[in-house]
């Protein structure tokens, strides 16, 4: 083994040692000094330019948009996109911002974010599911439905949805908005009459609000789940299963025209 080779490696190692020692002491010094935040607002760089090739779909909302309960994990949005891709030759881009458990106020908060607004601006179609968690609260509401409580929830929901819609419309007037309505997952249980009335009333209020906006479609799903609800529900008896999601997807797909 060449002696100079060893010497070279040794000296390189000493150099490495010093550099790393410097890095390490710098870290400690930096951590000790605990300066106040130095983050300055970064200059807002140029608007996001999305290559406008094909159509853009933005999906917003709760677990239905996310696809909870679908064995294949697609959700109605997944099936919808598949179906649309068969129908057209255009390239489809999907942005799915659905978050499980979202209520209308959380959706409103999300839509206030810059990045989401940028995506909404470029959207050709916006699809939403919202309200299910406002109303059902994970099944609590309909176990012991109290009229005054429900109307309180509904008022809040309508207010949030109104603000959300106005925000979206102010960003993008041309996009068609589809809002998928609620079904009654408890239609098989006793008390179906009460729960059905509540859900129908809820959907009616949503529909009433949406009528104020152009290019906005309320998509009913109540009838889809009316007769054989258990065939279309996931084992949690709340979210749709694959079949249920496919039904919703077919319905929305038939409404979308470019």
């Amino acid at each position: 083994m060449n002696k100079t080779y060893v010497t070279i490696v040794s000296f390189l190692s000493i150099g490495a040692f010093l550099v790393l020692l410097f890095g390490f002491s710098w870290t400690i010094q930096n951590q000790l000094s605990k300066e106040k935040s130095t983050v300055r607002e970064q200059p807002q760089v140029e608007e996001i330019v999305n290559e406008k090739e094909g159509k853009t779909i933005v999906a917003l909302g709760d677990s239905l948009t996310r696809g909870t309960g679908d064995e294949e994990g697609k959700g109605y949005i997944g099936y919808l996109v598949e179906e649309l891709e068969e129908k057209t030759d255009e390239k489809l881009t999907l942005h799915n911002y659905g978050v499980k458990g979202y209520r209308s106020e959380q959706l409103l908060n999300q839509v206030k974010g810059d990045t989401i607004q940028n995506q909404i601006k470029d959207a050709d179609v916006i699809i939403m599911t919202i309200g299910g968690n406002d109303l059902f609260q994970g099944g609590q509401t309909l176990v012991s439905p109290k009229q005054d409580e429900i109307s309180l929830l509904k008022d809040q929901y309508v207010r949030n949805l109104k603000e959300t819609m106005e925000l979206i419309k102010s960003i993008n007037q041309d996009a068609v908005i589809f809002l998928v309505g609620l079904y009654n997952p408890f239609i098989d249980l006793e008390d179906a009459a009460t729960t059905t009335a509540v859900v129908r009333d809820w959907n009616y209020s949503t529909n009433l609000l949406l009528d104020q906006y152009p290019n906005t479609v309320f998509v009913p799903t109540f009838d889809l789940f009316q007769l054989k609800v258990n065939d279309y529900l996931f084992s949690d008896k709340f979210h749709p299963n694959s079949k249920g999601y496919q039904l919703i997807a077919e319905r929305v797909a038939s409404l979308i025209t470019w």
Binding site: I48, N50, E51, G54, T56, R66, K91, T93, H95, N96, Y97, G98, V99, K100, G101, G113, D114, T115, I116, N118, Q119
Partner: peptide
């Protein structure tokens, strides 16, 4: 995601993480 803007990717990551949080 179709486009490569990092903000889109990051937003999508946030949504994905939020979904994992609720499971």
């Amino acid at each position: 995601l179709g486009d490569v803007d990092w903000r889109t990717t990051l937003q999508q990551q946030i949504v994905d993480t939020q979904n994992r949080l609720t499971s």
